[in-house]
């Protein structure tokens, strides 16, 4: 829970803004040996695509650190599928990929996919992901205040027999636009309960909302948490610096599967 850190920043910001005491400084960083950075999100019915880049020293030029000699394979049910190096963009989601196969992901809950990536420098990254079952959204409802603003309530049933992790995303009008709300939760406090996720009075009549509930792996949740913590620590004097908890071995990154229930509503 990051609420207290947010409160402290709120207290501190007027002071900092009032004084405007900020300046550029030189920081000498130790030499950094780049490591492979992999992002792979498998989605049912879509081709197998991943992004392989490498890390950069913080003050290096901000360019895309491609790794053209990286060779990537995904293994499913004993079959090793090669992903060819072909940097390309997906204009719908505004995403970039470096490696792809025409093979479509067909995994069912419980199935396991394995990834291995290597390059000519001897760097090697491996990872696995197990397909999770979809968790259906029960109900989506909303309530108006006196200003005709609506809050949104999304309910679903948590499985009491497992530790579950979720990512909740709300888009306005289209999933092709940037999300209006995006956060991830675990069921530590709500195990086995019918969980309701609320919101502030952020919506108005006739808003079209697309609500997605992702059922995510714990290691993906840990990766999201650690990257969020690392980003927050850079610029927040009250936050503890955090190391990245990757789901891959031998490098940095995430290899997981995206299973979600998605509903569209129009606020009336």
């Amino acid at each position: 829970m990051k609420l207290p850190n947010t409160l402290y920043l709120l207290l501190l910001l007027p002071l900092l803004a009032g004084c405007n005491l900020q300046k550029d400084i030189d920081v000498v960083l130790p030499p950094h040996k780049p490591v492979l950075v992999v992002e792979g999100y498998l989605e049912y019915g879509r081709p197998l695509r991943i992004t392989v880049l490498e890390s950069s020293s913080y003050f290096d030029e901000p360019e895309v650190p491609l790794v053209p000699d990286a060779k990537a394979f995904i293994t499913y049910k004993g079959r090793r599928i090669a992903l060819r190096y072909q940097p390309h963009a997906d204009p719908v989601y505004n995403k970039y990929y470096t490696h792809r196969s025409d093979e479509i992901m067909t995994g069912q809950p419980g199935d396991m996919y394995t990834l291995d990536v290597s390059d000519n420098q001897g760097r090697k990254v491996t990872a696995t992901t197990t397909i999770l079952p979809r968790v259906p959204i029960d109900t989506i409802e909303w309530r108006f205040n006196e200003k005709e603003e609506a809050l949104l309530l999304t309910s679903f049933q948590d499985d009491p027999d497992k530790a579950n992790f979720y990512r909740y995303v709300v888009h306005r009008d289209s999933v092709e636009k940037a999300s209006a709300r995006d956060f991830f939760v675990n069921d530590n406090l709500t195990n086995g309960q019918r969980v309701s996720i609320g919101s502030g009075y952020n919506y108005r009549k006739n808003d079209t909302l697309i609500i997605s509930l992702y059922h995510i792996e714990q290691k993906y949740y840990d990766f999201l948490t650690s990257t969020s913590d690392a980003k927050n620590a850079n610029g927040n004097p009250f936050a503890q610096p955090s190391r990245i908890k990757s789901t891959v071995e031998g490098g940095i990154g995430i290899f997981t599967n995206l299973v979600y229930d998605r509903k569209m509503v129009i606020i009336k």
């Binding site: 920081v27 960083l29 130790p30 950094h32 780049p34 950075v37 992002e39 999100y41 992004t51 880049l53 490498e54 890390s55 950069s56 020293s57 913080y58 895309v64 997906d90 989601y93 505004n94 995403k95 970039y96 636009k177 940037a178 999300s179 995006d182 990257t227 690392a230 980003k231 620590a233 850079n234 610096p241 955090s242 190391r243 990245i244 940095i252 995206l258």
Partner: peptide, 28 residues
């Protein structure tokens, strides 16, 4: 503690891509 390196993270939506700091040794 300061980051020594960074990587780009696209996440599930490329529009929310961000730079993630990589921290190394504590209090270095």
């Amino acid at each position: 503690s300061l980051p020594v390196a960074r990587f780009a993270m696209q996440d599930i939506e490329g529009r929310t891509a961000s730079i993630v700091p990589i921290y190394s040794d504590r209090n270095s």
